[in-house]
Design a protein around this nucleic acid. Structure first.
Length: 303
DNA sequence: TAGCAGGAAAATC
DNA sequence: GATTTTCCTGCT
């Protein structure tokens, strides 16, 4: 199916798709191909229009607009977070970067795999899991695999998952999948709550069976930001911690600041994360998650 | 709370 | 080719 989607507010497909939010997009020639929404979406930006080709009627204009959140007023968001020089420079440089509204289960599973890995590695693990457990289909003569269901991964074996190169992440992914498959994680309830409560509920539901699942504050924030509409969630990975330490040392309490300075490395204890998160959200406000995404792009682009 | 292991691959030297 | 680092969490 071919269609176009008009863009009425700023949007950069390129910046959005390279910003490390989603792991199933790749560029081929002038087009971006994404395995999303149960099919393939092929998309290219031409000025203020998105040209799209999709493998299924379900992936139409309204789906695309919802996925890229095109109906939201990005200028208003960016104005609200542009509180000082570093963030303003990042916003100017990556203008049009938007947060994507992803599938919640896929987002959770993907970020469980993201610990101690870099983006190419994460993409490789996700693809391996999809190839092994996801339903295959064809588009333009190529074979693609949908993201596997929670049931498929929950019913897998840890050793088969390890075969996808997941290492120690394999048992975590299996347990998370099993929890979701049983219906233990009510994503709608999580999404309906204010941020602080949504994070508590997500973690409580995942920990409900008293088995530790590989979802800590950082992964929880990614799920809340990228799939549950919690725009104030501010995931703090090593890069963001570095960016904050450099440009916003005043937002870190003195003990964390001193430790980072002393040790040179960015290593955060649980309490540090929660405090820094609250501090940064207090500063950037309700769209802190956008600030995080722009700061991430800025610091990653340096090297 | 601090320190460490975990597995494999990318990045760096 | 060896070493370090990697969008971190769980355990002691």
């Amino acid at each position: 199916m071919e269609f176009t989607v008009p863009i009425s507010s700023p949007f950069s497909l390129e910046h959005t798709l390279v910003s490390g939010q989603a792991f199933r997009w790749s560029r081929r020639g002038d087009w971006w191909y994404g395995v999303v929404g149960g099919g393939v979406l092929k998309v290219r930006q031409e000025g203020d229009v998105l040209k799209c080709v999709s493998s299924t009627g379900a992936l139409g204009a309204s789906w695309v607009s919802d996925y890229f959140r095109l109906d939201e007023d990005l200028e208003h968001v960016l104005a609200s977070i542009s509180r000082d020089d570093p963030i303003t420079r990042a916003v100017e440089r990556f203008y049009g970067l938007r947060l994507i509204r992803q599938d919640r289960w896929e987002c959770l599973a993907s970020f469980v795999l993201a610990t101690n890995a870099n983006i190419p590695r994460i993409e490789k693990m996700v693809e391996a899991v999809c190839a092994k457990y996801g339903e295959a289909f064809e588009f333009e003569g190529d074979v693609y695999h949908r993201f596997p269901s929670p049931q498929a991964l929950g019913g897998s074996t840890v050793s088969d998952l390890r075969g996808c190169g997941l290492g120690y992440r394999a048992p975590f992914l299996k347990k998370v999948a099993a929890s979701v498959a049983r219906g233990d994680v009510d994503f709608s309830a999580v999404a309906s709550l204010p941020y602080e409560e949504s994070r508590r509920l997500l973690l409580r539901e995942l920990f409900g069976e008293k088995v530790l699942l590989g979802v800590g504050p950082k992964v929880a924030d990614c799920v809340l930001l990228y799939s549950c509409g919690k725009d104030e969630a501010f995931p703090i990975d090593v890069w963001i911690a570095r960016a904050v330490a450099r440009s916003y040392p005043r937002l870190m309490d003195s003990s964390l600041r001193a430790r980072l300075k002393r040790e040179g490395k960015v290593r955060m204890a649980a309490g540090d994360y929660v405090r820094l998160s609250a501090s940064v959200r207090g500063y950037f406000g309700g769209y802190a998650g956008y600030a995080q995404q722009y700061l991430y792009m800025a610091i990653r682009s340096e090297e």
